[in-house]
Simulated assay, not measured.
Amino acid sequence: MSDSPAGVVDLLGVLAYAELTAFLRLAEDAATLAPTLTDRAELSDLAATEYANFRLVRDRLSALGVDPEEAMAPFVASLDDWHAQTRPRDWLEALVKAYVGTGIAGDFYREAARHVDQETRAIVNEALAEEVRSQFVVERVRAALADNPKLGGKLALWARRMVGEALSQGHRVAAARPHLALLLVSAASAEANGGSSAKDDGPSTPTGGPSADSGTDLVEIGRLFARLTEEHGRRMSALGLVPGP
C-alpha cells in the first residue's frame, strides 16, 4: 500500500492514462489519416514517444507501491469522452489536436505537478516535453496554411472546440477528485501570490483530506484555467492560427 498523498497518485494516474490514450489515438490517426508514408512514420514516432511516456509514469506509480490500473481507472471515462468528442476528421485536424488539445491538457498536469515531490515533478515534466511534437506539427500545419490560407478559419474553430472540451473535462475531473483539485488550487493560489510555493524536498499537498470550501476551490481552478488559455493562444500563434476569444 502506498503512503503517497492521494493527489500525487491521482496526478500520476490521470497522466498515465492520458499518455496511453494519446499513444492509441495517434497510432490510429497515423494509420488512417496520414497522407504519405513519411507523415505516417512521423506520427508513429510521436505515438511511440507517448507510449514511452506512459511507461515512465506507470513505473513511477509502481515504485510508489500503487497499482497503475487502479490509479488510472477513475479517469478512463472522462478522457475517453474527450477523445470521442474531439475525433479528428482529417489529417490537419489530427495534427492540431496533437499539438493544441494535448498541449493544454499537459499544461493542466504540469501546473498540478508544481506542488508534488521533486522526483515526481521531474517525471511529469519529462513526460510532457513538447519539443518533438512542436517541430513536426508546426511545420506541417504552417505549410498547409501557406498552400491554402482559407484552412485557417476551419482549423482555428476546431482548436477552440478542443480546448473548450478539455477545460470542461478538467473541471469535471477536479470536482470529482478533490485531492487532485487541491494541487490545482495550490498552483492557482501560488500564481496569484506571484510564484510557486513548491519546495524541492517534498510535496506541499495537504494529506488530511480535501478542503471543505469546495466552491472557493473551484473558483481558484477556474482562474487557473483562464490562465491556461493564454498558453493556448501561444500555441495557436505558433501554428499560424488566430487565437479566438
Rank of each mutant, 00 (worst) to 15 (best):
A105G: 07
L92R: 10
N53G: 07
R58T: 01
F108K: 04
Q85D: 09
G103V: 03
R55S: 10
R58M: 06
R89L: 13
H83I: 03
A98Q: 01
A73M: 14
F108G: 00
D45V: 14
A47Y: 04
G103W: 05
G101E: 03
P74M: 10
A105S: 07
V76R: 13
A73C: 07
A47P: 02
D81W: 13
W82C: 03
D67E: 11
E70M: 14
D45P: 02
G103E: 06
D67V: 04
R87M: 10
A48P: 05
I104K: 07
D45A: 15
L92Q: 11
E93W: 06
D90T: 12
L64H: 13
P68C: 04
Q85F: 04
T49Q: 15
A63M: 06
L56F: 05
L56W: 02
Y51C: 12
A48Q: 15
R60T: 14
R60W: 03
D107G: 10
H83N: 08
E50D: 07
P68E: 06
P88Y: 04
A84I: 08
P74R: 07
V66W: 05
D107L: 11
R55C: 07
W82K: 07
A98C: 04
D67K: 00
G65W: 15
F54N: 01
L64T: 12
G65H: 14
V57Q: 06
F75L: 05
A98F: 03
W91F: 15
S62V: 15
A105H: 06
G106N: 12
E50W: 03
P68S: 00
G65T: 00
Q85E: 11
E70W: 08
T86K: 06
F108C: 01
I104G: 03
L92W: 11
L61A: 02
D80N: 08
D81Q: 10
R58L: 02
A63N: 11
D107H: 09
A84T: 12
A47C: 02
F54I: 03
F108M: 08
